Simulated scan of single mutants.
Amino acid sequence: MGGSEAEYVFPNFDDTTPVPGAPKGCLWGFFDRDGKKDEIGTLNLLARDVVTAASKEIQTGIHVQLDWPLHSLTYPSFGRKPFHHRIISLKESLSTFGFDDEIHINTQSGSQWDSLRHHACQQQRVFYNGLTFEESLKSEKNGIHNWCERGGIVGRGVLVDMVRFYESRDGKAPNAASRHEIPIDDVVAALKAQGTTTRQGDILVVRSGFVRWHNSATDAERRRGTFEKAEFIGLEASEKTVRWLYEHHFAALVGDTVAFEAWPPQPDSPWILHEWALGWWGTPLGEMWDLERLSEECERHQRWEFFLTSAPLHVRGGVGSPPGAIAIF
């Protein structure tokens, strides 16, 4: 099915259509068509012409899956259940030499997409496009099935490799198991150092080093860092960051850390990125993606743009999903 051919010309941040109870920069209603409330937000930017242009990034045929293995996160944060995998022999039940398997996952305990019904704007208790918390309890609105029914997520991915940037500039990267805030000025500097220019409808992918840290950490370090302390590297949640992200109009935002933004957020801050992305804009958030081999291929190709596909689990009303993501060079 894919995206439509609609063209979107965004107002300036301060000139967005006023929405009662919402801040300037809110995009509720912007993607509505024919009297129907939109449920996919900035994925509308992945129109057919945008996807066709993105396909030109396929030049070598090398491809990298970006899902971290489901069992990887040893100690999920915030009381979430760890991944469980059970293999079932068919010898007794079917008199067949073979196997089935069953898995249990909390979709927030590994590589994931956050859907537009995952995290509300807390003070207002509303999700994207005005869906209330109370209405969401009894409806499937803003669920991930909407993404699947449009054909999944396909577009141009752009990696901004903050680990390599900091190692080159400072000699080492920040501790990923700490609440280190990455200023948006550093993101801009890293893009410039890579020679990367973004465009409307891109999927911005930020490597900050959490997966690399976790892969090399001891069991005790993992328990302390992800379960007991639960502080993580990520983008700085500030007015400057929010305005920069708005001005670049990305289709989705992805990171290799637990919450994309530095976590936990500052209490009562008006600039929490989860609220701006998921709530006010309808921009999907990808978290804990495995960007390690992707970083290597970008360095080898000396380009940080690639064709990106993602097929989330087709679950009606789904709140989150493994991404099923592949980058193709």
Rank of each mutant, 00 (worst) to 15 (best):
G29L: 10
Y75P: 00
Q123K: 14
G41W: 10
R156W: 08
T60H: 10
G130N: 03
H249A: 07
A54L: 01
T226M: 03
G29E: 12
L45C: 04
R222D: 07
F210E: 08
A325C: 12
L45D: 06
R212F: 09
D161G: 05
D34N: 15
A217I: 00
L253G: 11
Y128R: 01
F133M: 14
K141I: 09
T197S: 11
D14P: 00
T17R: 11
W213E: 04
T60V: 02
H63R: 08
A53T: 04
E297S: 08
E149D: 13
F260M: 11
G234F: 09
R169Q: 15
H214L: 15
D114W: 14
G29K: 07
R223G: 02
A6H: 14
Q266G: 02
E92I: 04
Q112E: 12
K172E: 14
R199C: 05
S139M: 05
G35D: 12
G3Q: 06
K91E: 13
E39K: 10
R293T: 14
F99Q: 09
F306K: 01
I58W: 07
R300M: 08
E135T: 03
V51N: 00
D202H: 06
G155D: 06
N44D: 01
K36Y: 12
V163M: 03
A237R: 01
G234A: 07
A176V: 00
L73M: 10
A217S: 11
S208Q: 09
K240H: 09
Q200G: 04
W213D: 10
